[in-house]
Write a protein that binds this DNA or RNA. Structure first.
Lengths: 183, 183
DNA sequence: ATTTGCCTATCTACTACATGGTAGGTACAT
DNA sequence: ATGTACCTACCATGTAGTAGATAGGCAAAT
């Protein structure tokens, strides 16, 4: 765990906890017990750090997809859910939801990475839904892409809403998605 | 349209376009052709403005609810959708989604208002779903509250995602919700 | 073996700027 | 003459980012 990777890790957590525009290099420096300027040694600009955070997330996503290629559709879907279960346990939100809110303030490079990440996620879930439908284990009343969008938006926003409505809303949503999907 | 209400209107737009932490009093002053300090005359602090924005949204919500009390459940639901249709046309996101992302940076008073607003919305949609189910026009495979949560999260996040995935995703999601609901 | 020199990672100290907020004044209408 | 709505001018703070110094490690050249 190099300083560089620690900076990325903390930057990621801060984005998902407070939002891109609400965290500063000082927040990271303080957490690591180093000085503000040392962050700039590893990442010349805040945008560079943001891009590194997204690159890391993208790599993790690809790894998760790769790990599950041979699994059954329902288990693939559970892999997808596992991302949000972890985030929910942290009391944070997902990086797409966080950065999407700040979209119109983001550097064009960062915005492009974000779009790439969101579309890759959508592509993955669409494939899962499609496969499940073709194998006859998922019941669909719309196109795979539509259903994937519904599932992703349910997950993404339930992380944001659960922090407002309190309770177990995140978990009931997750369970209802599976229940409604099962053929 | 007093200056005060104009400030609220622009503040609201800025929050839903750039996020609470990314807009400044200067943005509003510039838009109105007045000076920074004049905003402080109407709203002593940024938090006070944020609260006024939420109060206004809450009043609009109550008015929309009131206007539709005698409508059929499906039409009530369409009233609910109309909120998001308008926002989508603006290329912005909803205020709950925007502020929820910034939750951990918000003043405690503002956070409380936000929770109130989110819960009032959830209550309304839950009632609509429940009524539709009781009247036999909506088909449910979960509790009214669960279904309401699914619908709200679909809407909330599709505004955020549509800005990333481009196309007509918002509209297809909206149509699919209605299709899946109809008994 | 020691020197030379570069690379890494950090530091102190600084700049330029934007921010939210304040103080006090002015023009004007009721 | 009192309140409204705005102004100019200012302040304190926090921000991203820069410049230049230091200290240690490593490796090739002397």
């Amino acid at each position: 765990m190099s300083t560089r990777s620690e900076i990325i890790r903390i930057g990621d957590e801060l984005i998902r906890d407070k939002g891109y525009n609400a965290f500063s290099f000082y927040d990271i420096a303080k957490a690591l017990g180093i000085k503000n300027a040392s962050i700039h040694y590893h990442f010349p600009t805040k945008v560079a750090l943001g891009i590194a955070v997204l690159d890391e997330q993208m790599a993790a996503l690809e790894a998760l997809i790769e790990k599950g290629v041979q699994k059954e559709p329902l288990d693939k879907l559970k892999d997808f859910f596992s991302i949000y279960i972890k985030i929910e346990a942290e009391g944070k939100i997902c990086i797409v939801g966080s950065l999407a809110s700040d979209l119109h303030t983001l550097d064009v490079l960062l915005a492009a990475k974000l779009k790439e990440f969101a579309n890759r996620t959508l592509e993955w879930v669409t494939d899962i839904v499609k496969e499940g439908h073709e194998k006859g284990v998922f019941r669909l009343s719309s196109t795979p892409r539509d259903k994937a969008l519904m599932i992703i938006t349910n997950m993404l926003a339930s992380l944001q809403l659960t922090r407002l409505t309190g309770g177990q809303d995140f978990n009931t949503i997750k369970d209802t998605i599976i229940k409604e999907l099962k053929a």
